[in-house]
Write a protein that binds this DNA or RNA. Sequence first.
DNA 1: ATGGCCTTGGTACAAGGA
Length: 255
Amino acid sequence: MKLATWNVNSLAVRLPQVLAWLSANPVDVLALQETKLPDDRFPHAELEGAGWRAVWHGQKTYNGVALLARTEPRQLQKNIPGFDDDQARVVAADVGGLRIVGAYFPNGQEPGSDKFAYKMRWLDALRAWLRTELAANPRLVLMGDFNIAPEDRDVWDPVALAGTIHCTDEERAQFRALLALGLADAFRLFEQPPKSWSWWDYRNLAFRRNQGLRIDHILVSRALQPQVGACLIDKQPRRNDRPSDHAPVIVELRT
DNA sequence: ATGGCCTTGGTACAAGGA
């Protein structure tokens, strides 16, 4: 079983690339972030035509998440229960015997800003909810755009970017607190090439220079860890014309 | 360099992203 996550930075723009990628990369579940579509504009018919069931939670202009699956997702959850939020950032469902949580974590903009405070509140609420969710669903995967580079090795220039957004101690402590719930960063269960990133700025020829961050993650619960066979970042779609600034992350679970 | 790009909304340029 293969699962993947991809921040597509507008599904309206990227749908053809998503369908092409899915044809070449037969995953069972794909979590999407930054669909940037209200629910009535989600392209469920096109996806259905390609053999994908979907659940989606979107809004106009910003944010928006979805899960695409080969089988019907059940037990749908949109956003974090009990956390009043006007931003569409979470969609969860049961697929193939797994609890799948797809999430678009807040960016946070700048330490000390209102948006950063929101990011911290959102992370607190996510963690509290996941604690109960994990207790009820031991086979759980949390994947998406975390907007957190967990360690210095996840940053192309950790000196220049020390303490900046995605790299602050507070964000990294939040990431470790998620791991402490009993989750593992699937990517780090394996030896990986140095300078592995999942996002490259559109500016500065950043992709060509491989100047990026690893901020898109797949976390697996303890019960699933023995089944994780591989985890990789697929840089290929970042080479497309009009690419997303993020690349997909893929995990393989042995069944 | 308080920059460089991309998307949306809307039709000029601001906001947001990371």
